[in-house]
């Protein structure tokens, strides 16, 4: 295991707060969140409180609704029931300007690495010297200095994901959504991405990350939300949920067993 990974996993965390239970006023709240499509309820009455500065990990089997929940929380999809509130106000475009998201498959504009960063800053209205400074910082953060003039789409998967992270972070979001940001990446690239996530946390960014990797959940997360069938079946501090899962679905999934609930 590399040194950086050890540092992350051994980081001293603040006392853990259960999602939705204690701590300062939540930055984001989901109340009775539902989403229906094709006559099926894909997200079923989810309540969440996301507190500032925390890293919340969302886990669950394929099709449990993790990515969908992330999109609902970020406002990319409109819920069919319930609501998402940002600092006690309805989530709107202005609130979304304080958030950023990195997708499992990074979406690279058909431009250079630097132009991808410049675009994100331009749409936020940044121009001139400040934009230049932020671009330079972001390129350094992603360790892409040598590739800054290359077309973004020729970068490797790991480099593209680092660029996507840098593009998300360059606008200094208060909340960062990450949808399996290290899926299909090699250990070195995973380490680089996790380091960027750690760096973001140190600046106070609130993180919500979807992952299938229990090790990553332990390294990065404070709180864990376990989904099954579009419902939250378990929440709590990461170590508690991973070490002593209470729900049958979480126990089965973490134990590597198949869990198929009986159909009514």
């Amino acid at each position: 295991m590399s040194e950086a990974v050890v540092n992350i996993s051994e980081r001293k965390r603040a006392p853990l707060a259960r999602t939705g239970a204690v701590g300062p006023a939540p930055l984001m709240t989901a109340r009775g969140l539902c989403f229906d499509a094709g006559g099926q309820r894909l997200i079923d009455g989810i309540d969440l409180h996301i507190h500032p500065g925390r890293c919340t990990v969302i886990m669950g089997a394929n099709g449990s609704g993790k990515s969908l929940l992330l999109r609902l929380l970020h406002g990319l999809i409109t819920p069919t029931g319930g609501e998402v509130r940002w600092q006690e106000r309805p989530l709107d475009a202005a609130a979304r300007q304080q958030q950023a998201m990195v997708f499992q498959r990074p979406v690279m504009l058909r431009r250079s690495v630097m132009a991808n960063l410049r675009f994100a800053l331009s749409v936020r209205g940044l121009r001139g010297a400040e934009r230049k400074t932020r671009e330079t910082e972001a390129i350094a953060l992603a360790r892409l200095d040598a590739l800054k003039d290359k077309p973004a789409r020729v970068l490797s998967g790991g480099e593209q994901q680092r660029l996507a992270m840098a593009r998300a972070l360059v606008c200094a979001p208060r909340m960062l959504f990450l949808d399996e940001p290290t899926a299909s990446l090699d250990p070195a690239s995973t380490q680089a991405i996790e380091q960027m996530i750690e760096d973001a946390r140190e600046t106070g960014t609130t993180i919500i990350v979807v992952t299938h990797d229990a090790g990553q959940a332990r390294r990065l997360g404070d709180d864990l939300v376990f989904l099954h069938g579009g419902r939250v079946v378990e929440t709590g501090p990461v170590a508690q949920v991973l070490d002593n899962p209470r729900s049958q679905a979480a126990r089965a999934w973490l134990g590597g067993r198949l869990f198929v609930p009986a159909t009514p």
Partner: peptide, 20 residues
């Protein structure tokens, strides 16, 4: 989704799409 996430406005969307 990336445009929505970045908060790209209608005019910027059209211009960016035409350029790309």
């Amino acid at each position: 989704e990336q445009f929505t996430s970045l908060g790209v406005g209608p005019l910027d969307r059209v211009l960016a799409l035409l350029w790309d």
